[in-house]
Amino acid sequence: MNTEVKNKKASMKRRKTISKATAYTILSILSVLWILPLLWMVIQSFAGPEGSYQNGKIFPDSFSFHWYIQLFTTSNYWRWYLNTLLIAVVCLFLSTFFTIAMAYVMSRFRFKSRKKLQSIAMILGMFPGFMSMAAIYHIFSSVNLAGGQATTAGLIFALILVYSGSAGLNYYVSKGFFDTVSKSLDEAARIDGATNAQIFVKIILPLSKPIIVYTALMSFLGPWGDFIFSNYLLGTNEKAWTVAVGLYNMLSNANIAAQYNMFMAGAVLIAVPITILFLCLQRYFVEGITGGAVKG
């Protein structure tokens, strides 16, 4: 009897160890698959001056800071970096405001054309986002914010407008959040004589830190990752390029042989700060998405 129980316990233990070992093995293999490409990027960025494009090897022959120095001395990289940072920061404020405002209205107010506006927003969202790219380009060039006549500042201004202008349409996730904030708070404040504007600024906004951080994070990251609009609008004016356009051009057929490792260095320099930022705010990201998903 006693031995039987012992045997059973031992077999349970063995089973657990096996399943644990399998889990760890799978996780390790997958992690390696996910990390290796990124590691390879970092390694390539430190390649020696001879470069490593199409040399038939897996790792560079020697290591140096050569390509980082090249990046800052021979290309407009720092300029692209500042451009993107400027655009991202302005968008952070504008887009967040538009999105939060729209979401708050859709969640808290009941007015005649509310449902209609919601359906229109949904319909607009179903057109490919950059279908209107050509139209926007022509609209901007008719006021000299794009095309041959545009100045560098004008181009950057145009990009800011493009990124933040339509932010109101992405209200859905934030609306889901506002829906969960109890309406009795509003009612209590209204009894105390607060106006809707006061309720929004003094009661709802302070309670909405998670969703504001989420929206701000998304608005800030957007310009760093966008390639489509920036490439199309900015054209050949190198001084106005964003990091994405600049780096993409390093890999064009004409440049790739000379600038391959420079691309890696440039990629590392944007990947590191953004990754850190993202990891710090990861909690808000998950909350934002799942919060919205729970609401449907």
């Binding site: 490409p37 990251l221 990752g225 780096l247 890999l251 990947a271 993202f278 990891l279």
Partner: peptide, 17 residues
Amino acid sequence: TFFVLTIAIPQFVSLLL
């Protein structure tokens, strides 16, 4: 975190890579 790294890095970087 190992897996989240690919989300954090801008897509055009990881995809060009």
